[in-house]
């Protein structure tokens, strides 16, 4: 692989990884506040892309209002998922809640397929498709949008969590709902907030990536899985590590395709995340066993 090629694969890896990072952020926020792993996270990404396509192509609404509406609508769905599926099952164990989110994701996928069809769709590019050249590598403007959006979302989320009362309250609720209640924080409001934030971040990612990589009713399955692996690198604890995890997985996948030797070919690309997950699980379960013994 030449330096130019390496750079090319690196850029496409960072682009793909940025999308994983946004999915991972959603997993991390919901897990931190509710201890639920929301397997409908990939569906938020799917909805962001599908809805923006629907609004732009079928209803002829301009780009920016379409994006805002798509994100807003997904945010409402995130709130509905929490209110109807999670909050009502309040006494259920966390495992039951996780299974509920799997059911919700199947429902959303089926619903979308029924109404919007099975075809892959491509919303228009935000700012054309004239590639730029950076150090001999081509980069498409939509890729810059994806990377830029991820950076901006990560920074805004960081400022929100560290500088605002509500962000602090989310962190407090994640540390201990009991202690949070003592200062007046309603953990259910925090859980609702977490679902809405996760839906917003996921749908933004979905809307920004769709013009470049296409989207369809089942795009959330694989993205959800990759985002899950990315978030598990940091143990679903730190938003920043989740972002780094997402980009790492994206870059490894892309470079593996670039190597194109032995198991490292494009047909095995998706297996890389699965192998990474196995390694993470092996390391983590070992650590869990150690912690248990320490107790």
């Amino acid at each position: 692989m030449s330096v130019d090629q390496f750079l090319q694969y690196l850029i496409s890896g960072i682009t793909q990884g940025s999308i994983y990072a946004l999915v991972a952020l959603g997993f991390t926020i919901i897990y931190a506040v509710t201890r639920v792993i929301n397997f409908a996270q990939g569906e938020f990404v799917m909805l962001g892309g599908m809805l923006s396509f629907l609004l732009i192509s079928s209803f002829g609404i301009p780009l920016i209002p379409s994006l805002i509406l798509a994100v807003l609508f997904t945010a409402i769905i995130g709130a509905i998922i929490y209110l109807l599926a999670i909050r009502t099952a309040k006494k259920a164990s966390v495992v039951s809640l996780i299974i509920i989110t799997i059911g919700v994701s199947i429902f959303i996928r089926g619903f979308t397929r029924e109404f919007l069809g099975v075809d892959s769709v491509r919303p228009p590019f935000f700012t054309g498709d004239e590639s730029l050249t950076i150090f001999g590598a081509l980069i498409r403007p939509q890729a810059l949008w994806i990377i830029g959006t991820t950076i901006v979302v990560t920074i805004i989320l960081h400022l929100f969590l560290s500088r605002t009362m509500m962000g602090n309250a989310l962190k407090a609720s994640a540390i201990s709902t009991r202690a949070a209640a003592m200062v007046g924080i309603d953990s259910r409001v925090m859980a609702l907030t977490a679902f809405v934030i996760a839906a917003v971040i996921g749908s933004i990612g979905g809307a920004v990536m769709a013009p470049l990589v296409l989207t369809s009713y089942n795009v959330g399955v694989m993205l959800g899985l990759k985002g899950f692996v990315s978030a598990s690198i940091g143990g679903f604890k730190s938003p920043i590590i989740s972002v780094i995890g997402g980009i790492t997985i994206g870059v490894i996948e892309s470079l593996a395709v670039g190597i194109n030797w032995g198991p490292f070919t494009s047909s095995y690309k998706d297996a890389i995340a699965i192998v990474a997950l196995l390694i993470i699980l092996l390391i983590r379960s070992g650590r869990l066993a150690l912690e248990e013994r320490a107790d």
Binding site: M165, N168, K171, M182, G184
Partner: peptide, 25 residues
């Protein structure tokens, strides 16, 4: 409460500021 239940991984200032949460919420 017994055992204090402060938010250990947050800063002292953030702990205190959260004490005033009820005014904002």
């Amino acid at each position: 409460p017994e055992g204090r239940e402060i938010f250990g991984s947050m800063s002292v200032a953030d702990n205190l500021i959260l004490g005033a949460y009820s005014w904002c919420a």
